[in-house]
Design a protein around this nucleic acid. Sequence first.
DNA 1: TCACGTCAAGCAGAT
DNA 2: ATCTGCTTGACGTGA
Length: 287
Amino acid sequence: MTINLGYACINTTINCTSNKTFRLNSYSEERLKKTIEENLNCLDKIIEWNYKNEIKFFRIGSGLIPFASHEICKFNWQDFYKKEFKKIGNKIKKYKIRVSMHPDQFVVLNSPTESIVEKSITEIEYHCDVLDLLGMRSDGKITLHVGGMYGNKEEAIERFISNYNKLSKRIKERIIVENDDKMYTIGDCLYINERCGIPVVFDYFHHLCNPVKRINYEEIINTWKKKDGNPIFHYSDQLEGGRKGSHSHSINVKEFKKFEKEIKKYNVDLMLEVKDKELSVLKVKDV
DNA sequence: TCACGTCAAGCAGAT
DNA sequence: ATCTGCTTGACGTGA
């Protein structure tokens, strides 16, 4: 069994970012096109770099297409950049790299405010568009958190499930739910899975911040069907001297090895969430 | 070239 | 009441 290590959104070695953006104030179609082109070029470079460095798991940043889900954007970037996406997607497939995405904190499926749920769905659709245009199969996942509590966790969980059930098939095929560091534990996520079938991401660091008594890895892994690909886990260390829940600058090799030992009997794709990104992957890979 | 106030979006908890 | 953190700082103005 192997653990496939990955990193999120940014490569600190390459001198480019695939999350370049601009202010809403300075929005124009020209500006948008220019930025998208730079982002796609950089994504291509990151994929090449990952391949050369044998890193087979990468999270594509949500800023790839700025303002994609904002009403200001009337530009059909999906059609306009079809070829570019396909080219990058073919490379990803050829290199056997797994990609995922993770919308930011504004995506809240369980909000009691209808307009926030609607906007969240539009944003998830944008993430789906990116993965579809790249030609990713249903193992190309979009990670969500359960959302807010609104003073009533039970109701908030019910709202997540009922809103999940209303989603289109293409979104349901891609979204997965992750335990967070404050509110929803891995146990809550497993309960949600039982009710609606959404695969569960285990975030080890969040689990340490917001634990349940016993952890059963088999149970988490069983929420993933074959078409979902390898189960995805997330890993980080606590920032020494930082607030509880702050991610460390770099990975603690000794701590990581302890965790790796616990899970190495499974086939898991493990996303490292540390600030020095790919450097930590190289640090613990093959050690 | 660099410092620094601000940036589309939600929410909870700390201050 | 305001600020901070979240998967990730970067933009853009003014000196």
